[in-house]
Simulated scan of single mutants.
Amino acid sequence: MTGTTNRNGTADNDSAARDDGTTSEAADDPTGTLDEALERLHSAGPERNGWLSNHGPMAVEALVRHGQAPAVHRWLDHYSHKLEDMPDPTSRVTARNWHEALGDPRRIADWTAYFEQETAERPWRDVLTEWWPRLLPGIAAGATHPVIRVGHSVRTLLTGEASAPRVAELAHGLGYWAARHQTLPTATWTAPASSAAAALDAVPPVLEQSGGIRDRLAQLAALPVWPQRFPDDPGEARDRLEELVRAATHRYATHGHGEPIMLVHAATAPNAVLRTLPALPRPLWAPSLAAAWAASAAVTAAYTPGGPSPYEPTTASAEELFARAAAHGDDHTIKFTDTALDVGDATALAAALRSIELNPPVL
């Protein structure tokens, strides 16, 4: 990679960012709205009502990125009733005792404080690189929301200034992931699939289609083999991950009616991993693909409907669709539309419109 990086791991010039797979488009927020919003949100915990996720940091990042900064504080004012204070700390997480604290949701505040200290003392990329392989097996944590939150955070750090609120947001995302760390059951591998789309179509639904996601994921028994030849080359792993995000986004257009909110994560979780790849050493890209496939397939198994339904194509532009998602106000719809715009083709835009139609508006 050309160029240099500063202490916090951000690229010092645009060529470095481009060579690393990122883009300089929408690279920063000259309004300061994102930092203001993150500071508002960081007094809150990552969950509410026991285990429902705080989507605020992810939604405001997407809103700012797509030119909706003027709407952010109004959106937060409306969303704020869903926020709960950060839980009280219990005992300190350290380099020696972290194994026993992993996956303990009572330690959310302890984990957040740990990562705040780590990212204050070391470049954020170094912290991410150390912890990514430790956390990746638990990608199902919090219905995949922690990895999605990390993906939004890393995207901002890669394409803009590593300000204190943005580095703190990474700490909050990693802390949430560590506290909710949850591995998936060991599944039997079924017949190989020729493509990511065919693999998602071949995922068998869990037997009991009721209850919360933790109950459903516990039933996961079988997944098709995909990719048929697991890539040794990091570039191929990235290409297959892009294929998976595209296939899951497209599938929402025809299958999102099965569970309009939960099925967005079949696309947004692997896209979070894809967004994080440029900040990771290339040897971590192939295992990242494997985890992303497991997460997308698991969500598909948990919520897939009995069959597809027709959808209408859209002539709306990407900008028009995101403006509609912002006006709609639902956090999952905003985040899914953000992912659909990353994919960018006609079917993805139709899937974004489908999410706007299926999910109830909140503004």
Rank of each mutant, 00 (worst) to 15 (best):
W177P: 09
F115Y: 07
L363Q: 06
W131R: 11
V245C: 04
I334N: 02
T112I: 13
R354S: 11
T188Q: 11
W285Q: 14
S53P: 03
S24W: 07
A37C: 10
S355T: 11
L135D: 06
H181K: 00
P165T: 12
A346Q: 12
V60I: 09
A253M: 07
H255V: 03
G160N: 09
W293K: 15
E357R: 04
A350R: 02
N54T: 07
T119I: 11
E25M: 07
P105Y: 00
M1V: 06
P227D: 03
E357Q: 03
S43R: 15
L363D: 08
I356W: 01
A199T: 04
L136Q: 15
Q182W: 04
L358D: 02
A247G: 02
P278N: 08
A222S: 14
A143C: 11
R282T: 13
A352H: 01
T268L: 01
P224T: 04
A171Q: 07
R92V: 14
V264P: 04
D88N: 12
N49R: 06
L223H: 11
Q209Y: 00
G258T: 06
A141K: 02
A248R: 07
A269L: 06
P283S: 13
L63C: 03
A191E: 15
S53N: 03
A269F: 01
V93H: 04
F115S: 03
G9S: 07
A141Y: 02
V264G: 13
D19S: 15
R74F: 01
T31L: 08
A346G: 09
D239H: 10
H73Y: 00
T314R: 08
L207I: 02
G50R: 08
L38H: 06
G50Y: 10
T22W: 14
P204V: 05
H250R: 11
A44R: 04
A222C: 05
V206M: 07
T119C: 15
D338S: 08
A62I: 00
S309F: 03
L174S: 10
M86V: 05
D77T: 09
P137E: 10
R149W: 09
Y311D: 12
D232Q: 10
V60W: 13
G344Y: 06
R246Q: 12
R48E: 14
E242R: 09
A290K: 13
Q228E: 10
T304R: 13
A221P: 15
H181Y: 15
V362F: 00
P204E: 12
T300E: 13
P204C: 10
P46I: 00
A272G: 09
A325Y: 11
A162S: 13
A202Q: 11
A71S: 10
L280G: 08
P192C: 04
F336A: 09
V127C: 08
A198E: 08
S194I: 00
